[in-house]
Design a protein around this nucleic acid. Structure first.
Lengths: 159, 159
DNA sequence: TCATAACTTGACGTGAACGTAAAGGGAAGC
DNA sequence: GCTTCCCTTTACGTTCACGTCAAGTTATGA
């Protein structure tokens, strides 16, 4: 099964369906040098490596990287001529990258928190006035409500 | 001091410097209805609320939201006429939002992990061949190295 | 064999988020 | 009064990541 996975090939449509991408996007990524599928005649044939790269591309895009950045990262990883000086540079870049990623994660955690607070507030309001409009998880709502201060509007500039 | 902060005003340049944004961007956000600074004559005067909103805008952008999405979120929070039906809808939207945020956080955690693995691999390589090129944290490097399997290239398609 | 679908390349279009002149107003300092 | 600086608006330009035809080629099934 590892072998089957390792040597399987995929059509463009298969990958599109699997990752909910469009063929246009895959061709675009190829155009930008992020993918290099084989050809059978003139149609593209993707292998496991292409698939893995596509996965990384899409993850990178979800995170907010540009295709350019993603390409640079993959190029870095792909280098076989691990020139030590370049590696030292790459190392510094990676460290910086990690820092910005952590910053981004903090941003997201913050956003999740304010969104959850807003949810809790709305739930308590709904529970109070129109509990019939609440979707299933009343238990969850009441739990959250218990964790809240009496009635603060959740969006007073938390400078 | 709370009062001072609360009633302070800011020029466009002050906010730009504080948040490393451009004046063009702030005016653009205003154009899109995300900011509504007061005017003194024809020059913009931002208050604490504007500042808080700007902060949220920038965080949203870092996370990857479009200005449109950010605007909708802020409009939601700002609503004073908390119509219960709209609130029920908003609640569902927020829940979905939270899910995608969590997905995004997982993506970021994954990226951080692969980046850290790559760092560790590069560090072990440098430590082995050119320890002189390593930046300060050799202890960290050796610790990481100890946690690694012998010598795997860190980027073999982890499908 | 013929249609139909899926693939291809190429070229132009598009929306978002600004950048970048161009042209001018108003206050401060010399 | 003149310069300088910061502010303003208007408007066109740009980059990115594709979308969207258009037109042609190849594989598949009736």
């Amino acid at each position: 099964m590892a072998i089957a996975d390792e040597h399987r090939t995929y059509s463009i449509r298969q990958l599109c369906r699997e990752f909910s991408a469009t063929a246009r996007a895959l061709r675009f990524y190829e155009d930008k040098g992020l993918l290099t599928p084989a050809r059978k005649g003139q149609t593209r044939v993707y292998d496991a490596r292409d698939r893995a790269r596509l996965k990384l591309i899409l993850r990178g895009r979800r995170i907010g990287f540009s295709l350019q950045e993603i390409r640079e990262m993959m190029d870095l990883y792909d280098r076989k001529d691990h020139n030590v000086h370049q590696m030292a540079i790459a190392l510094r870049r990676h460290r910086a990258q990690i820092e910005t990623l952590k910053q981004q994660r903090d941003d997201i955690d913050g956003a999740i928190q304010t969104a959850e607070e807003a949810c809790a507030w709305m739930e308590s309001k709904l529970l109070e006035h129109r509990p019939d409009l609440l979707p299933g998880a009343e238990a969850y709502a009441s739990v959250l409500k218990a964790h809240l201060n009496p009635d603060p509007h959740p969006f007073k500039a938390r400078a």
